[in-house]
């Protein structure tokens, strides 16, 4: 967590991502800039929380880092090497080093495959040729995320949301990645399950030193897991810094507004919070 003394694992500089919008005809199309020149770094073993509301470009940033969205301008440097100039397909070594966990645990697993296959397929692609070795490592990965070997042969429809998210984490971690992009990874889960998954991610980080880019709209989740936080609005980073600094002493108006809108999990003082919200809107009740 000593970001100042170690060189960053991931360095994003002036990143811009455009989406094509408009008709099917080439001359009607125009570029919509959804990420507008953002810069941040993630140190090894650190969690960077990227917060913002829907449409702020936070998921697109994650996709650009995963090489799933084309970068229009700016650089992304991973472990000292540029990954924007890699061309259309990312090399396998990068695929192994950067993994992802998504919001929808049901959708992120093939409904027709036994869940263990998600893990063994990834291993097979990354050069583990021996079938027994793949099984052994899949079983070990399942154990690390709190699942049993009996779960390996289940279909996704036979597992709960929390269990499926554990499978997704096992798939991401089995290749010993250095960075995992968690895109709203706990947002679809029930509260008690959410806490368990966050704890699991932190435990794995403490053990393996993996870094997380944690994309979420939930400031409570960020407070719980991130060391650094960036606040994204309309494709721009309006504020970033250590979690406690940004959430306890926000300097940007938008961060303050987000914090004021976040609901406290306790009713104490809610009248004054409501009054503050109304005042911030210029005295309009709603």
């Amino acid at each position: 967590m000593n970001a100042t003394t170690t060189s960053p694992l991931l360095e994003v500089r002036d990143l811009c991502v455009d989406y094509d919008v408009g008709g099917a005809l080439a001359w009607r199309r125009r570029a919509l800039r959804v990420v507008r020149g953002i810069s941040f770094t993630i140190a090894p073993g650190e969690t960077y929380g990227l917060v913002g509301e829907s449409g702020s470009g936070k998921s697109t940033t994650g996709r650009a880092i995963l090489r799933l969205a084309d970068v229009s301008a700016g650089t992304i440097t991973f472990a000292g090497s540029d990954i924007v100039g890699l061309g259309r397909t990312a090399p396998l070594s990068y695929r192994g080093a950067v993994q992802a966990v998504y919001q929808d645990p049901v959708g992120s697993l093939n409904p027709r495959h036994r869940v263990g296959q998600a893990v063994t397929d990834a291993l097979a692609r990354h050069g583990v040729t021996d079938r027994t070795e793949r099984r052994r490592r899949a079983a070990a990965a399942f154990e690390q995320v709190g699942l049993g070997t009996e779960h390996l042969t289940r279909l996704p429809s036979e597992l709960s949301g929390g269990q499926l998210q554990r499978v997704a984490i096992a798939r991401a971690l089995v290749l010993s990645p250095r960075l995992v992009v968690c895109d709203e990874a706990v947002s679809a889960l029930d509260l008690s399950t959410q806490a368990q998954i966050l704890d699991l991610l932190r435990d794995r980080q403490a053990e393996t030193g993996v870094s997380y880019l944690f994309i979420t709209h939930d400031l409570g989740v960020v407070r719980h897991i991130a060391h650094q936080v960036g606040v994204l609005r309309a494709g721009e980073l309006v504020e970033q810094g250590t979690t406690s600094r940004v959430l306890d002493a926000p300097s940007h108006e938008y961060t303050k507004k987000l914090l004021a809108a976040s609901l406290s999990p306790h009713p104490a003082g809610r009248e004054s919070r409501r009054a503050a919200r109304i005042a911030a809107r210029g005295g309009v009740a709603a």
């Binding site: 799933l68 697993l109 798939r171």
Partner: peptide, 13 residues
């Protein structure tokens, strides 16, 4: 769907 994207991230061709 997520599982296709996950497969891409795993490096499947």
């Amino acid at each position: 769907k997520g599982y296709v994207e996950s497969a891409r991230v795993s490096g499947l061709n």
